[in-house]
Computed example of a mutant assay.
Amino acid sequence: MVRFKNRWLLVELLPIPAPLPSQTARTQEDITNKQIWAALKQSVITHFGDTGWGAVGSSLTIKYFSPRTNLCIIRVARDPHKLAWASVTLMTTIDGRKFIPHVVHVSGTIKQAQLAAIRHNREVVARYRARAKTPAGYQDSYEEFLQTSAQEIEALQD
């Protein structure tokens, strides 16, 4: 028996601020897994046609998205994972809002994607702390955020 082999893409969706104040009413918290999936589907069809969607479509799922951190974990079959990776990179909008997708990590197991997501969150918080020039022993709200985000990410199942 042959098992289904996956690749897991850890993607950071960096929002581009709207030029007009009236367009900022909708935030990233409005975005759902379904909207990300639809935008990714449209990107695959636009850039690789129906053949590309046929290769990727049956295995493509959005396993996790955090509007707070803008991190997304995407599962795709191993063979067409580069096609999905290219489509994520070429994606520009999700539900009318502009984003810059940044593929942070690609792995073969969900566990490695989870560890990379937790590590990425810690690096981002460390950058915020360095920018704020806080002392090492300073307690802030980031500690609680890191704990809750790590618990959310570790709760994912394959």
Results as ranks from 00 to 15, higher is better:
residue 2 V to Q: 05
residue 3 R to V: 14
residue 7 R to C: 06
residue 9 L to C: 06
residue 9 L to Q: 02
residue 13 L to T: 15
residue 15 P to R: 08
residue 18 A to C: 15
residue 19 P to D: 07
residue 19 P to E: 10
residue 19 P to L: 10
residue 24 T to A: 07
residue 24 T to S: 07
residue 26 R to C: 04
residue 27 T to V: 11
residue 29 E to R: 09
residue 29 E to F: 10
residue 29 E to I: 13
residue 30 D to P: 01
residue 32 T to N: 04
residue 32 T to G: 08
residue 32 T to C: 05
residue 40 L to Q: 02
residue 40 L to P: 05
residue 41 K to E: 03
residue 43 S to T: 09
residue 45 I to T: 12
residue 48 F to T: 09
residue 62 I to K: 12
residue 63 K to S: 14
residue 64 Y to D: 12
residue 72 C to T: 04
residue 75 R to M: 10
residue 75 R to Q: 11
residue 76 V to E: 01
residue 78 R to I: 12
residue 79 D to T: 06
residue 81 H to A: 11
residue 87 S to Y: 00
residue 88 V to P: 03
residue 89 T to W: 09
residue 91 M to R: 03
residue 91 M to F: 05
residue 94 I to W: 00
residue 94 I to F: 02
residue 95 D to A: 10
residue 97 R to A: 06
residue 100 I to W: 10
residue 100 I to K: 12
residue 101 P to Y: 01
residue 103 V to G: 02
residue 105 H to V: 00
residue 106 V to R: 07
residue 110 I to K: 00
residue 111 K to A: 10
residue 124 V to K: 06
residue 125 V to C: 08
residue 125 V to L: 06
residue 126 A to C: 07
residue 130 A to H: 13
residue 135 P to I: 04
residue 137 G to F: 02
residue 137 G to T: 06
residue 142 Y to K: 03
residue 144 E to I: 12
residue 145 F to W: 04
residue 146 L to V: 09
residue 147 Q to P: 03
residue 147 Q to S: 11
residue 147 Q to F: 04
residue 148 T to G: 03
residue 149 S to R: 13
residue 152 E to W: 03
residue 153 I to H: 00
residue 154 E to D: 08
residue 156 L to S: 06
residue 158 D to I: 02
